[in-house]
């Protein structure tokens, strides 16, 4: 047994032992009156968000409205992670890319079954991801899930028909533009609220701009705008992550 393994084992046993000892002091599993479940904040979200935002899905209400800052900067983290992957892997020299291109062309025998199946699945998947995005106020879903699924549809095209096939539909500069647009849409919504004299991301003032809404429905609709921004960024970055990792950043050849 290597010395590193013994060190690891001792560390893990000490950490785990302490945590197992601490489980004795945890609240009972599924206790509705535990401190986390019975806090004023949690009860406020459950009881009042229907009055303040009119959104049945509490998770969406808290995600896009009450904890708007959190979600905005998570979106920024995803965006920066996409940029970091492109920066780390680099583009490679043009000679390398040409060599990869030639070897890829030699093995360009894509499976017909995969291509035809992808052709059937991709439109349904994209339609369903738009449903998930738009219906996030009423059912599980929202910007993150819809965005990941839309990105996955491009990944499916790349897996079945090759990376160039997918890149001809969503190029890397296009994807970066889409990702930036998503963050801009989110931050812009917050800035518009500020310009109308409210706090950043305080949506209820938007009823002055959106037609036929009151203060409650303005928050409802602004949440949808914000989720669309999240979905743009997540779609683009998921595709960029796959495209860069499957081709070592050369954006040609690939899996």
């Amino acid at each position: 047994m290597a010395p590193m393994k013994i060190v690891a084992l001792i560390t893990v046993i000490i950490t785990g032992g302490l945590l197992l000892y601490a489980t004795g002091d945890f609240p009972a599993w599924g206790d509705p009156l535990s401190p986390a479940n019975n806090s004023a904040l949690s009860r406020h979200y459950i009881e009042q968000s229907r009055v303040e935002t009119a959104v049945p899905n509490l998770v969406t209400a808290v995600l896009a409205d009450y904890r708007g800052y959190d979600t905005m900067f998570e979106t920024v983290v995803v965006f920066v992670a996409g940029l970091a992957i492109l920066a780390v892997l680099g583009q490679g020299t043009s000679r390398e890319r040409a060599a990869i291109q030639r070897s890829a062309e030699r093995y360009q025998e894509r499976d017909m079954i995969n291509i035809m199946t992808a052709r059937l699945i991709v439109p349904v998947l994209q339609l369903f991801s738009l449903y998930v995005l738009a219906h996030g106020h009423y059912s599980p879903g929202g910007g993150f899930q819809g965005g990941v699924m839309f990105g996955a549809s491009f990944i499916l095209i790349a897996l079945a028909g090759g990376l160039p096939e997918a890149l001809s539909r969503l190029s890397i500069p296009g994807a970066l533009l889409l990702a930036g647009l998503g963050v801009l849409l989110y931050g812009g919504t917050g800035l518009v609220c500020m310009m109308l004299g409210q706090n950043f991301l305080d949506y209820h003032i938007l009823h002055r701009l959106l037609p036929a809404t009151d203060a409650v429905m303005a928050r409802y609709h602004a949440m949808l705008i914000v989720e669309i921004g999240v979905a743009f960024t997540v779609t683009a970055i998921m595709f960029i992550i796959y495209a860069a990792l499957s081709s070592r950043g050369r954006m040609t050849g690939g899996l």
Binding site: N37, T71, A81, F144
Partner: peptide, 19 residues
């Protein structure tokens, strides 16, 4: 409030998974 699961941990973890 006791009949509805607490949404706050869900929100925090949803973003954590994507990040």
């Amino acid at each position: 409030a006791r009949t509805i699961t607490n949404p706050i941990p869900h929100v925090l973890m949803l973003t954590a998974i994507v990040v």
